[in-house]
Amino acid sequence: MTEYLVFRLYAPLASWGEAAVGESRPTATYPGRSAIVGLLGAALGVRRDDDEGQRRLRDSIGIAIKQRSPGILLRDYHTVQVPASQSRVTYRTRRDELSAPKKVINTILSSRDYRCDGLWTVAVWLTPQAELTLEALEQALKAPHFPLYLGRKACPPGAPLAPRREAFSRLRDALDVDFTPLCGRNAEEERRALRLPDNALYAWEGDARDLDGNGQGVESSESWDMPLNRRRWQFGPRTEYRRVVRAREEH
């Protein structure tokens, strides 16, 4: 039996950042390790420039996700005015930028992607070298030090995270725990109201058989979402395993 901290993530808007080049800011369909570590760090009050605190949190936990719904993709189109770079000119505030002469103002076009009404279950467990406790993480999620958001500050949770600790013999059992329905009187009404798909996606780290002892139908890839240095936005690779399961097979 392994003890897990399990909680739920839901919001009208969420954005799980991926590698971004140029003006496009895409989003994954579910949160990666960096997003979950950032969420827990905000709850604990670990600042981005606290390298030791970030390392302690990163090295203490393993993470798995159950995507109950990826949500609907929303693309937000932006036009932003910024002054051109000039030698010997420093803009210290946004007001300074907008006060620059119009002849040096440029317009940047960009797009930002969001997931609308996505729903995910997160399971966290301690690694052998853990320097934190699941109890401390649970209490932090119930009374966070900093405001929590799902990827961007414009994406606060739309429902309680409902964190709880419980021991399970399989990781999949932890991810399949039942929460109080977000809408409706039971799970079936919630499924209809939120238009949850027939399939659930499981994503985890460790080994291909760690989900439920069955390595069939599992795919893996290298994900560059291991936070190495938050101040410099440096990330490293990790191996992530995934399997899609039909809703009627979840239990």
Score class of each variant (00 low, 15 high):
156 P>M: 08
131 E>L: 13
159 A>V: 11
120 W>L: 01
186 N>A: 09
180 T>L: 12
147 P>L: 10
173 D>E: 13
150 L>P: 01
159 A>H: 04
193 A>S: 12
143 A>Q: 15
134 L>Y: 08
170 R>F: 14
151 G>H: 03
140 A>E: 01
148 L>A: 06
195 R>W: 12
156 P>S: 08
115 R>H: 03
110 S>Y: 03
182 L>F: 05
192 R>M: 13
196 L>P: 01
138 E>D: 12
130 A>Y: 08
159 A>Q: 03
194 L>A: 07
121 T>H: 01
117 D>K: 05
171 L>N: 00
110 S>K: 03
130 A>H: 07
113 D>V: 00
117 D>N: 11
112 R>V: 15
157 P>G: 10
117 D>E: 10
150 L>F: 12
154 A>G: 08
130 A>G: 03
132 L>R: 10
196 L>Q: 03
142 K>W: 07
172 R>K: 14
160 P>N: 08
149 Y>R: 12
188 E>A: 09
109 L>E: 09
184 G>C: 04
122 V>T: 06
186 N>F: 10
196 L>N: 02
126 L>P: 11
155 C>N: 08
109 L>P: 05
140 A>D: 03
166 E>C: 06
158 G>V: 10
117 D>Y: 11
143 A>S: 14
171 L>C: 03
180 T>N: 04
174 A>T: 08
158 G>K: 02
197 P>V: 02
172 R>V: 14
192 R>D: 09
135 E>W: 08
172 R>I: 14
173 D>I: 01
126 L>I: 01
185 R>Q: 12
134 L>W: 06
143 A>V: 06
138 E>A: 15
196 L>G: 03
134 L>A: 12
135 E>N: 09
159 A>N: 02
143 A>T: 09
190 E>Y: 02
158 G>R: 02
134 L>P: 00
193 A>C: 11
109 L>R: 08
139 Q>M: 14
162 A>T: 15
183 C>D: 07
183 C>R: 12
136 A>P: 10
106 N>Q: 14
113 D>S: 05
187 A>P: 05
190 E>W: 04
190 E>S: 01
109 L>A: 12
182 L>N: 07
197 P>C: 06
178 D>T: 15
112 R>D: 00
188 E>V: 15
188 E>L: 05
105 I>K: 15
199 N>W: 02
158 G>H: 05
124 V>A: 02
111 S>V: 15
156 P>R: 04
150 L>C: 13
